[in-house]
């Protein structure tokens, strides 16, 4: 394993955990602010920003 990979791999894993948690939550909650498919696309394709936006604005407190 190259040194670069050794350094970047933990970060990639962290990001994957974040995306996975967001997707699991999205599949479990009944309703979100805005359509669910939109959040799925945002979480999957806009890296960190979409996931953070989902946790901040997508989840409903009720």
């Amino acid at each position: 394993m190259s040194d670069t990979l050794k350094l970047v791999l933990p970060l990639a894993i962290l990001q994957l955990i974040l995306v996975a948690a967001a997707l699991v939550d999205l599949s479990k909650v009944r309703r979100t602010n805005g359509p669910k498919w939109m959040w799925a696309i945002l979480i999957l394709f806009s890296s960190l920003l979409g996931t953070v936006a989902y946790f901040l604005f997508g989840r409903r407190s009720d």
Partner: peptide, 9 residues
């Protein structure tokens, strides 16, 4: 609300 996961990450 997953805050303990996502904010530290």
């Amino acid at each position: 609300s997953y805050k303990w996961l996502w904010i530290p990450v």
